[in-house]
Design a protein around this nucleic acid. Sequence first.
DNA 1: CCCAAAAGTCATCGGTCGATGACTTTGTAC
DNA 2: GTACAAAGTCATCGACCGATGACTTTTGGG
Lengths: 206, 206
Amino acid sequence: MAEPRRRNRSATRQRLLEAARHRFAKEGYEAASVRDIAGDAGVDAALVFRYFGSKKGLFEEAAAARTPTTPLDGPPEELPARLLHSLLFEDWSAYAGEHPLVAMLRSSAHDEARDHLREELCGTYVRALERLSDAPDAALRAELFSAWMLGIGVLRSVVGTPAISAATPQDLAPHLAAVASALFDRPVLGTPPPPPEATDHPGSPG
Amino acid sequence: MAEPRRRNRSATRQRLLEAARHRFAKEGYEAASVRDIAGDAGVDAALVFRYFGSKKGLFEEAAAARTPTTPLDGPPEELPARLLHSLLFEDWSAYAGEHPLVAMLRSSAHDEARDHLREELCGTYVRALERLSDAPDAALRAELFSAWMLGIGVLRSVVGTPAISAATPQDLAPHLAAVASALFDRPVLGTPPPPPEATDHPGSPG
DNA sequence: CCCAAAAGTCATCGGTCGATGACTTTGTAC
DNA sequence: GTACAAAGTCATCGACCGATGACTTTTGGG
């Protein structure tokens, strides 16, 4: 009933946004052309301007798609492990294989991208992490840990340094615990959380 | 004798390289145009192709200019502080105000830039840092610390998060010592080294 | 069936890009 | 002082960019 429609405004919009996320993440804002993005989506480039007004508008809407913030929930002593695990080992194939924050660095000459990066980092990561410390410089500690996570993501998926690229969650866990405990001056777990992949039959009414 | 020459090939080459470092650092490889770079250097854009063959050749030669590696020398327990201090508080005005490694992330969609980043990070930073640990995963520890430094640089000069942007060397010192000591499993100093800015009249040898 | 609106395409504009080669200016050796 | 080579400029090319508006195709209601 709803399937024989081949012309579908919202579906085409979504395909354009998806293609834009890929291209912007892989090539950066300047190098990604509207024609290429529209080609990936299988439509004409003129539709980009009809739907998003300009290339900039397309970028903003593509970047505005929030990254899931589920790793924020859970016990505080697991939060650093949760965040790092999400950044490194979640499936970010929709963003050319990199976490959006890492991919966005390629467009960091673009003001919109910088603002988006800062808002996402400060509003989400730092805000959650700074609760781990009671020290007066809790915000600095939270930013320092965010910097570490972002740096690990960069070295892993952008620069491709050998040890971090090959590291498994188990390899990182002890160092994560040590660094986070030192930075927040309290015990922090390093084991990555496996909550989404629950067992098939928990046996209880969850 | 050698000064009344106003047309000077090597001097013009250097001016072009300097302008290129600025533009590539600030705008990224794609967004920086040969015409703008040549304009900054005060010459015609055609000289870029005469001297460097192509825009890519200009980028490679501009990026190949080594960043000074003096912070590598000194006692090992000071090495992390030395590196971080150099990355954050040295005068990088020749690279648009950012450490070359941080600025190069803007061009990270370019293969040459990625290779250069990896070589510089692994060949210089990781190689020096991994001597701080005797553990079998010393390389991973060194990469993790390099990731932290790079991330701090990114948050400070690219993203501009408030706490790290406002932090002084003294603010960072205790956290640097804590994190480095935890990561390398040995005491590491957090105080930044002030060797280059010696007092005006030391008055005593050594 | 017909038609209007929506969805998508096409041709094209002005501008800029990297790159090339002919041309002009400058310094210098004879 | 003149000729020659180096240093630098200028005009221009083809390609691609973002963007626009007229055009064509599809969809769905009467």
